[in-house]
Design a protein around this nucleic acid. Sequence first.
DNA 1: TTCCCGTTGGTATA
DNA 2: TATACCAACGGGAA
Length: 541
Amino acid sequence: MAAERRTLIHWFRKGLRVHDNPALTQIFNKARASPDKFSVRPIFVLDPGILDWMQVGANRWRFLQQSLLDLDKNLKELNSRLYIVRGKPVDIFPNLFDRWNVELLTFETDIEPYAMKRDKAVQDIAAAHGVKVDTHCSHTIYNPEIVVAKNFGRAPITYQKFLSVVEKLKLPKVLDKPQRLPNGVQPIADELEVGQSDVYECPTLDQLVKRPQELGINKFPGGEREALRRLDTSLSDEHWVASFEKPNTAPNSLEPSTTVLSPYLKFGCLSARLVHQRLQEILKRHPKHSKPPVSLVGQLLWREFYYTAASVEPNFDRMLGNVYCLQIPWQERPDHLDAWAHGRTGYPFIDAIMRQLRQEGWIHHLARHAVACFLTRGDLWISWEEGQRVFEQLLLDQDWALNAGNWMWLSASAFFHQYFRVYSPVAFGKKTDRTGAYIRKYVPELAKYPAGCIYEPWKATLADQREFGCVLGIDYPHRIVNHDIVHKENIKRMSAAYKINREVRTGKQEDEIDYDSSMSLTTNKRNASFETKRSTAKRKR
DNA sequence: TTCCCGTTGGTATA
DNA sequence: TATACCAACGGGAA
């Protein structure tokens, strides 16, 4: 009798795909082996609690919505479907476990603190309801837990060290999509579905997006189908793949100079393990290929690097109490932060990047470097946490570990320490776009400025500005800081911050430390120094 | 303790 | 286009 069937649930969170999805494949195989015993319910939980954890901008909601629609389609091709459940996991699971007579729950592991807490709670609930839970690590190529264990309980904090650790590890077996379910495994409608046929349907865009005016161009639609298509396109030119070196790609080309697979990897529409396997196959045919850290494989391994580091530090996205992070007395400047976030700094290259980000949800990695350096140690001296928050909202590929890790890198707070290497908001972009075509596209008010001064519009005379149809202070802002002056001051501030951190780290007594050595002492700074001690203590443990 | 190295700086000089 | 220099960091190996 159908009523006696037991339900197998796969819970999608990240990993919005049917290919290379071991947790999904597990329940499909189990149901296929005993089709008269089981029903299969692949679910996605629309969890309002996630908003206490994450900022999600309109473009990112759209990407998720499209990914869910595509996932439902892909599951239907396998004779199943996606069930969207609305509510907090801790509230809805007890109900589902009872109502659906659940035997097994599977999901992909995650290392984000919000996810780990949520998953622990759900596992406890499952245990109380007699539901078995199986988890699989498939968001990353290597299991962060194993990498940490192989490195004697600590995450490697240099890329080279990370490489030496993972080189010894076995690569995962990449799975194809599961085989189609036989007829009869689909669950019969539950009491909620009866008379409410749309109760588990995918959300519409207007259900998710509260401010539709913030929706930009849909240049990178979500979903597994699009992800695999994009992968094929990216890998079609094998010479390009084999010779890829990230630093040689342009941050300001009019069309992306890199693959833009990152949003798909973030949501798991695309398996990093599959990409890795496909790359290895190509590289076998091209013995003289580029290598990590600059190669395409190297890019995947950066992702692994940050995931591993983040997996053992719940404060990875904060300066205070973060074992990796240098304590720096950043300043609060809401006006400057706002100008930066909305592309109104008066530096055309910086503004073009920030506007592209807001419109399209993706910017080149080196463009991220330029704007991140500008916000933090280069020019504005504003905390990387503020930048992280803006990126979190706007980037389609926003991934907690990568976003925080890269912000620490760029602000020279962790992993990278050569703070005297500062990006110029004027010179850096010129290397790959002499004429300023990128600026003309994203800062159209400057479109008539000639190549000679489009990166530095303040060099145009007022008469010229009028002729070019864009007067500074009226049609486009004056620059909010003078880079030539502030970046030198900031290098000194960094030097002082490093000195204090060094002294605290090496155990010099607090009263011996000269906080005033090159800048005035602020409350902020004393707190920062105090927290460093805590971090250091933690690190030694 | 010393020395080398580090995904992707900027600038001047040849 | 390549190289030296700027002023100088931390991690990690020796």
